[in-house]
Every structure is written in C-alpha cells, then in structure tokens.
Design a protein around this nucleic acid. Structure first.
Length: 803
RNA sequence: GCCGGGAUGGCGAAACUGGCAGACGCAGCGGACUUAAAAUCCGCUGGCCGAAAGGCCGUGCAGGUUCGAGCCCUGCUCCCGGCACCA
C-alpha cells in the first residue's frame, strides 16, 4: 500500500526518458511508451474487438466512414476514428455486443495516377497503403474487428458490387442512355454533376467541358419520393444533413401544360409540354421558351441561317454551364418563327429559344410570365415582349408596428429586377377570365382541374434530383458486368460468371481512352447468350457504388456464396451509429439510402434506412485550412504518438472543441492534454490499492470525504450524459474538474488517508470512477491502472468488460 | 438570390435550453520548490473605477416581452456551409 501522501515525485520510468529523443525534455512524465504497447497487447490477446455476430440481443453496430487508402493518416483523420473508437468502447463497457468493422474505399483515381507516375500496378500501390494505414489505426489505439476488413478493390468484394449492378439491371433500375456529361480533360474521365465544383473537377481543379457519351445510369429518381419521405424517419441524423438532402431531392408541385403547335411541321411535334409551379399565372404567359439544345428544334426550325444561330447559342450555353462562372450570363434568345396556342385562351404565343432554360428539369420547355417572374421579365424587356399583369399583390401592411421599428413590411413577394419591381408572390388573380378575383392557391387547383378536363395538362410533381450516372472511363474500378453482342445486343454477365476481373495487361498512360480498351484479353469475349463473339463493356463503376453497400458486406466478409447474409443483416442492421465527414452529407448517404431501399424492394433486407444515427464531425484545420497531404499542413500521428503517446492524442483530439465544428490544431493544446494525463497518473499511481478498497460499503463520510464523493458523482453523471450526446469536449472538462478536486484533496497530510478511513474511501472511489469514465478516451493508461490496481478480476479482465 | 447554421474574454470554448455569464483548457501574471532553469504544486486572470471593501458596465447592432434574457420575439449587420437561370 502506498504511503498516503508523502509528496510523491512523479514516476520516472527506470532506464531513462520515455518517448525517445523527441520526447519533452527534462520532465517527469508518465511512462506511456511502456504502458501503451502493454495495454494494446492485452486487448489483442482478449480479442476485445472481435465480434462473431452470435448474440445480437444488445447489439451495437458502430461504423466510421471507410477511408480512401491514400497512404498516410494524419491528425485530421483521427477525429473520425477516435470518436468511433470511444463510442465502441463506451458501449462495450455498457455490456453491448459491439460490431466495429473497418474497410477501405480502395478504388479511385489516385491509385491510377500513381500507376501512371511510378508504373506500379494500382493494386500493389493500394495494398501497400492499406497495410500502412492499418498499422496507424493500431498506433492510435483505435480498435476494429480486423477479421472483417474489406477493400472495395479486391475481387471478393467487387464481385458483389457487380452482382448489385445486375440486380438493378434486372429491376430496370440500371439503364443505358446518352447524355451530355462533364468531362475532365486532365483526368480523362467523366464526372458526375456532384463531382464538379464551380465548373472544375473536384479532384484536380481543371475546368470541365461537356461531351456527349453513352452512359450507364441508376434510376434513383424512381425513389425520389421515398428518399424524401423517409428523411422523417431519420431522427438520429443532424437536421442540417436532412435539410441538405431535402433540398437536393428538391420536390415541387405544379402542372404540366400542353401547348398545340400552330401549323406544325409534318415530321415534328404537334404539341410542346411545359412544366410550371405557378399555373395560376397562366393568363399572363406571353411566350414559351426552349433551351437552344432542345431536340424538338431540329424539326421546328428549318431555316438554315436560324438553325446556325441557335447552334451557336447552344454551344455558348454549354460552354458557360461547363465553366460555371459565377456571373450569371446575359439572357439571350432567338425567335423561332413559330407560335403555340394558349390552352385556355387560344391566343397565339410566340415560341422562343433562350439560354436561361436548362434541359433536364421538368420538360425542358418553359411558359413565361414576365410580369411575375424575374427571369422572364428580364427577357421580355430585352426583346420587347408583352408584360401583362395577372396577379394583384395583397395590400401592403400600413400599420405602424412599433415592435418592427419604423419600417413598413412591404417587401414580401416583391423582387427588384432590371430597374423595376415586380411581384412574384401569391396574390389574387386579375385579367384571368373566370378566375379573376380568386386567390393564387385556389386558382392553381381549379386551373389544373380545368386543364385536366380538357386533356391539356395535369398535376405533376417534379424533382430536382437526376439519375445517378455510374459509368467511369477509368481502369481502377469495378468493371460493369455487361457484354455487347452483335446479335443479342446488351447482355448482362450471368451471376455465376462473376467477377468480371480487371485485367493486368494494361498500359498506364497519362492520356487517352479508358485503359480497359487497351486490353485485348479483356475486351474480346463471347456472348453468354449465343456464344458468338462479343465485346466487354469497358467502363467501370463509380466508386460511390462500392460504398453504397459496404456496411452490409462486413457481416459476411468471408462469404463467397453471397454478397451478404440477409438474416444477419436483419439482426445487425441498421447501423446504430455512423460517423463521418459532412462532405458526404448528400451523395454517399443518399446513394446508400437508395441502394438500401432497392434491396428492401428485392426482399433482401427488411429495413428501409441503413443508418439509424449519424454524426458528422467537423474537420481539423491547420493555419485555417483543411489538413491535407496536398496542402502540406498535416500533423503526423506517428510523431505525436512517439512524443506524447496515443492517449494524449486522443484526449486532445476530443477536447479541441465541439466535435461537429471545425477546429484549429494547436500544439499548445496537445501539451494541455498531456499535462492532464500526467496529473491523473501522478495521483493515481501511488494510490492503486485505494481503488479496490473503495468497493467496500461506504463508511460514514465527514465533510471533506463527502465533498469529494459528491464531486465524483457530479463528474460521472456529466461525463456520462455528455458522452452519450457526443459532447466529448465538455465530458473531458468535467473529468478535469474532478482531477482538480482530487488533487487538492490529495495534498493533505498522510493521516487523512489511513486505510479504511472515510477520506481514503472517497479518494479510492474518485480515482476508481475517474479511471472508468476516462477509459474510453485514454484507454491505454486506464487499462494499465485497472490491471495494476487488481480490479481486473471481473468477467472480462479488462476495464472495457467489467462484468 | 434561396435554404440551413452561427456571432460570448487575448485564444479554443462552457452555461444542464429563461435563473450567479465566462466551467474546462491554452496563453499571461504572481508565489512555493530549486544555486538556477525546466517540470511540479498553489493563487490571480472580461472591462472600467478603487489601496481595499466594493461599485458600475459587459454575450455582433437597434428595439421588444419578462420579476429576470447569451437563451424568447421583431428588424438589421457580418461570418460559415449547402444549392443556384430548377420555371
């Protein structure tokens, strides 16, 4: 039993300063370099993170978004994984069956670029990085069930990604279509709209150009309504992410309107269909516009000179959209020479081509009401088109409301445009035949009904969401399992012939077509249907397809007979806690939700949403910008761990600020965390025997002992609540408060801590409970204390399974 | 432009959602220990006035509600994120 309190010098380990040459100089610091390997070995021996999936009665599936194996983890990554590890360990301590797997999102461009640069096969480069990153996770003390590790680039994984493609194809959810696509001239690849940031390639920053290609799409739009509706089920998601998805899906209600073409061309369309959310303004529609690239123009416009002008406009619009410059382009248009007939008034309405209409939303044809739409107004003014008012704004509020200051609230629904003020809000209809005097809301319903009865229109729901373009003209991805046969056309590769393996006889060049087209062994094949000669699809799948289902594969990581076991999936999913960066708030999460719903409809899973709770952590910045390899502002964990130990890195990373907010890295802050752990160790280490002693029944407590007892339980309850709510920063703060209280108490004279005394009991309790609450954050040192104090005799022999 | 979030000491931030503003940490200052320094331990640390006791002011700005407002309401300013000619 250690002497109660002779001022004990901090324990310097025998044999010199820990931490090696980089360690802080001349300090008495706790021997983390001896403790940490010891604790890690213990957990490895105990297989602390192994999960055999047998008992799901108290299952807890915690998942970190799997990383791209770029080569090195840095301190910025740590936030995600350390948080996940804390959550996993917390639930273990509560007696839950924790499933904490990890994998690698291993297809993608960097491996291919590295291959071009170093002439190393992408697989080799990738596997090397995976090995290195796995070791780094270990160094952080971040535990996973590595037995279930997967990498999306391995055939035993992408075989099932290909299987997933076939399932979608069978259901008619994967289709081939021609589309103008974003083309990055640098990476020589097609980019999804989502991968274009401000007109430039997300990855390399090169301005993208448009190109027409045959592409594979997933019909996510078929699930738009479900994806929107089920956001309501996601109570465990940040409001911000739900809002972003809501806006991305972008539902609006309106009407489509059929306009007869006056004197239609023989081969051309006899009517054009517009979509509008403001059918109440239809009496003010004085022209209709088409984008210059609209296919109907081919037959509607026959004059070669005009056609040429339209094509020029189309090219300019395409260029502008591709470059996506911030300035809105000047509105430009051309009269097609044709007229449409207004479905309600029969009036002749001119048909124009305009560069402010986008293909791909609604019908691509827009009826224009210049009096009540800023864009139409601008266009009408420029080209001298009529601007009749058909909506009367509600009377301005003229009451002088003192609580609103001295301003009149007259701005609602009014917009400033081209030097004029126009009303774009709802109001009362004027100059609208029998609807005159009717409020907008009612008029919308009635006019839609009339159009429906005349078969000249109908109610329509429109989404902003577009189908998911999954083709990539790259090598390092899952080959799309399809062949093209001269006789049978598009033929899916039968399931029992999967995987379609990536060939290795590939030449990696910085430019040119998809590398797969350069491999004759790959390209030439036989048709699975007729046995005749056929050609393989050379496109590979978007890596977002790989990551749209990986959370299922962890359950069946070694199963070579199926993608995942449905029964196990139903028992262990949804993921209870998903953790990752907010940059995936839209795409990855939307795609994973979509695929889950498809699998639900296929009867392969019986839950509708894959992730019950989601936490999106802020990034760690250095010098105000995101820590990243390319910016050269990373903090290497290896260095920090060597100097301060993994526990200090963990405490600091969690204490740095509210986890959902960005935080600036500070070396001084790391020192603070280190000081805290040193303090803990310095106080607890000489008093180890007090910890088990405090398991004895509570004696009558004097004032001092009672105060410490209360402080202990105050801290425990705060830390428990805060950790459950992901408020790790304040949870750690409460532990720091407790160590301050303990420290003051511990300075008292030796007599105060005679064994069996109330002070000794309270001190033992404080140190024991602090060790428990600190354990998920600083697991190594707490495990050490737990072992050395003899508390480990319980069920699991570790602080994380206290029995 | 539309949608969402935010603004609190020298700095990162707390404030259990209407009840002592600034917990905890960093930085700084003072003291103990030391030949000295480092480390450690103790104390101080929003601003102004005051020797002190104490007083006054203070949560982006202007108002309001309330016994009481960082928190609720109205109107602004600025910052961050998402979407963006979506009809």
């Amino acid at each position: 039993m250690p002497g109660p309190d002779t001022p004990t010098p901090a324990q310097s380990p025998p044999g010199g300063t820990p931490g090696g040459p980089g360690a802080p100089r001349g300090r008495d610091i706790y021997p983390f370099d001896e403790i940490e390997p010891r604790s890690r070995k213990r957990w490895a021996d105990l297989e602390l993170f192994r999960q055999d999936l047998e008992d799901n009665s108290k299952k807890f599936y915690v998942l970190n978004m799997f990383p791209y194996p770029s080569g090195d983890l840095h301190a910025g990554h740590g936030r995600n994984y350390i948080m996940g590890d804390v959550v996993a360990r917390l639930h273990m301590m509560r007696g839950h069956q924790v499933l904490a797997p990890m994998g690698f999102d291993a297809f993608g461009l960097p491996a291919e670029n590295a291959a071009i640069q170093n002439q190393t096969p992408p697989a080799e480069w990738t596997e090397r990085n995976i090995a290195r990153m796995r070791a780094q996770f270990d160094d952080w003390g971040v535990g996973f069930d590595w037995d279930r590790a997967l990498a999306s680039c391995r055939p035993d994984y992408y075989r099932w990604t290909q299987w997933l493609f076939l399932k979608l194809y069978e259901k008619g959810l994967a289709y081939r279509g021609s589309a103008p696509v974003n083309w990055c001239p640098n990476d020589k690849t097609v980019l999804a709209n989502e991968q274009v940031l401000d007109g430039a390639c997300e990855r390399c920053g090169t301005p993208v150009i448009l190109r027409e290609l045959e592409q594979w799409f997933f019909k996510i739009t078929e699930y738009a309504q479900q994806l929107l509706d089920d956001l309501a089920l996601l109570e465990g998601w940040p409001e911000k992410v739900r809002t972003m998805q809501h806006n991305w899906i972008g539902r609006s209600e309106g009407a489509e309107v059929h306009w007869q073409v006056e004197d239609p061309p023989h081969a051309g369309p006899h009517e054009l269909v517009t979509f509008t959310t403001r059918i109440d303004t239809i009496y003010g529609a004085t022209f209709v516009v088409l984008p210059p690239a609209h296919p109907a123009l081919a037959t509607l416009v026959t004059d070669p000179a005009l056609r040429e002008q339209i094509d020029t406009l189309a090219r300019a619009q395409a260029k502008h959209q591709a470059e996506h410059s911030f300035a809105e382009p000047v509105k430009e248009g051309l009269f097609t020479g044709r007229y449409l007939l207004h479905p309600l008034t029969g009036a002749r309405v001119p048909l124009w081509v305009a560069n402010y209409v986008v293909m791909g939303y609604g019908t691509g044809v827009v009826q224009c009401v210049p009096a009540h739409d800023t864009r139409d107004y601008e266009f009408a003014v420029k080209y001298g088109l009529a601007i009749p008012q058909v909506i009367a704004a509600p009377a301005m509020r003229e009451t002088w409301d003192p609580s609103r200051g001295d301003k009149l609230n007259d701005g609602e629904g009014w917009e400033q445009v081209a030097g004029a003020k126009i009303y774009v809000g709802d109001g009362v209809l004027v100059e609208s035949d029998k609807y005159t005097g009717m409020p907008s809301v009612e008029a919308r319903a009635q006019i839609t009904a009339e159009l429906e009865s005349k078969i000249a229109g109908r109610f329509r729901v429109q989404f902003r969401l577009r189908d998911w373009l999954v083709s990539r003209q790259r090598y390092w991805g899952a080959p799309i399992p399809v062949v093209y046969c001269n006789k049978d056309g598009v033929v899916p590769v039968p399931e029992d012939q999967l995987p379609v393996l990536l060939p290795t006889d590939i030449e990696f060049r910085p430019a040119g077509d998809s590398p797969l087209t350069t491999s004759p062994t790959f390209l030439e094949t036989t048709c699975p249907r007729c046995g005749g000669p056929a050609r393989r699809e050379t496109d590979t799948l978007d890596t977002f397809v790989d990551s749209s289902w990986y959370f299922l594969r962890f359950l069946s990581a070694h199963d070579s007979t199926q993608a995942f076991d449905s029964e196990a999936a139903d028992r262990w999913l949804p993921v209870d806690q998903y953790i990752g960066g907010v940059e995936h708030a839209i795409l990855h999460l939307l795609y994973a939700r979509f695929i889950t719903k498809v699998l639900f409809d296929l009867g392969l899973v019986h839950f509708r949403e894959p992730f019950r709770h989601l936490f999106t952590q802020g990034m760690i910045t250095k010098g105000g910008i995101k820590m990243s390899k390319s910016k050269g502002n990373t903090i290497a964990p290896d260095y920090l761990i060597k100097r301060y130990g993994a526990d200090t890195c963990r405490v600091y990373t969690l204490f740095i600020g509210p986890p959902e907010k960005d935080a600036e890295w500070s070396d001084a802050g790391v020192e603070g965390a280190f000081r805290f752990l040193n303090r803990y160790y310095r106080i607890v280490e000489p008093r180890l025997s007090l910890l088990p002693a405090s398991l004895a029944p509570m004696p009558a407590l004097g004032d001092r002992a009672l105060a410490l007892h209360r402080a202990t339980h105050h801290a425990l309850s705060r830390a428990t609540i805060d950790f459950a709510e992901f408020k790790f920063n304040t949870g750690i703060a409460s532990m720091m408060e407790l160590i301050n209280a303990i420290s003051l108490d511990a300075q008292d004279e030796p007599d105060s801590f005679v064994p069996g005394s109330d002070r000794a009991w309270a001190m033992g309790e404080a140190l024991r409970l602090l060790t428990i609450m600190l354990a998920p954050v600083a697991p190594h040192v707490c495990e050490e204390i737990w072992q050395r104090s003899g508390l480990s005799s319980g069920a699991g022999g570790t602080v994380f399974r206290m029995g």
